[in-house]
Simulated scan of single mutants.
Amino acid sequence: MNSVQLLRGQLRPVLMGLLMTVACVTTVRADDGVALTSIDQVPDGVEVRGKQIAAYTWDDRQGKNLLVLAEQVSERDDDGTQSAFVYAAQYLIDGNRPKRVWMLYDDVQHCEFDAALRFDREATKVTDLAGDGITQATVGYSRTCTSDVSPNEFKLIMHVGKSQKYRLRGVDRVGASWWDEEAGALRGMPLPKDCSVAGQQALVSQYKEQGTELPLPGCYGDEKDFAKAPEAYLTFMRQHWFALMQKQDTDWSQAQAQPQDPTEDDGSAP
């Protein structure tokens, strides 16, 4: 648990050309974000904690950047508890030694139920919102310690350079609806479209849900981190949050509405 793995990959003689010549690379562009190149092997000097699930490179005014994402879930301890963590870091590939710009680490320790932290790969975005060649790297992940299928804590985090960090923290859409066999339809509060306190309370009032706490599934708590941030940052993060929650809501709803496979064993006697 919490092991640190330093990958020792083969580094090209000309480091500037490294990330253009690595085998098995794919270039992806999401919305209006910066084009990212996905790589399997990171260079010497890049720390990876846990199991690497993704690594991306891109260029901006500062040079060549690398973002690595990793996760780990432990086996259960002797007392039956479980732990998990996520790790992310951005590096500048400068000269012969990668320089870490920032690092993210979050964990669940000694969970008595099921511990889980997972990156939402759809959340990974690199943007140049000011158009000045300085990029912002955004990642998102879910965090939980539960014994049932219910919404998880969700964090969407934007890093700008070494010290600036902006977050939206709330609850995702997993388990927010369920299939009502008698009605033949999905039940549950719809995905909120307004995460202000007033907007969330209006939705609670409209659907008369009992015992519901804010934030609602699919919403974040507040926008305090953005009080002194450029307006474009908050605009992007709001749009990105709701796009992610809409996809989660659609995927979850479709999974719940799928008819049961008649070939599956229902537990009854033949």
Rank of each mutant, 00 (worst) to 15 (best):
N2L: 08
S3N: 08
S3I: 07
Q5A: 09
L18Q: 09
M20A: 08
V25G: 03
D31P: 05
T37I: 07
Q41R: 14
G50L: 02
A54D: 11
Y56D: 02
Y56T: 08
T57N: 01
D59V: 12
Q62A: 14
G63M: 01
L67W: 00
E71R: 10
V73K: 14
R76V: 01
G80C: 02
A84E: 05
Y91R: 02
I93K: 05
Y105T: 09
Q109T: 15
Q109P: 09
F113N: 12
R118G: 06
T127I: 08
D128H: 05
D132L: 07
Q136V: 10
V139N: 00
T144A: 02
D148T: 15
V149P: 01
S150R: 15
P151V: 00
L156S: 04
V160S: 13
Y166I: 00
D172E: 09
D172R: 09
S177E: 15
E181T: 13
E182W: 14
A183L: 11
L186G: 07
C195G: 00
A202F: 02
Q206N: 12
G218T: 07
F226T: 01
A229E: 02
P230M: 07
F242P: 00
M245H: 01
M245I: 11
M245G: 04
T250Y: 09
D251Q: 01
Q254V: 09
A255H: 07
P262N: 07
P262C: 03
G267D: 01
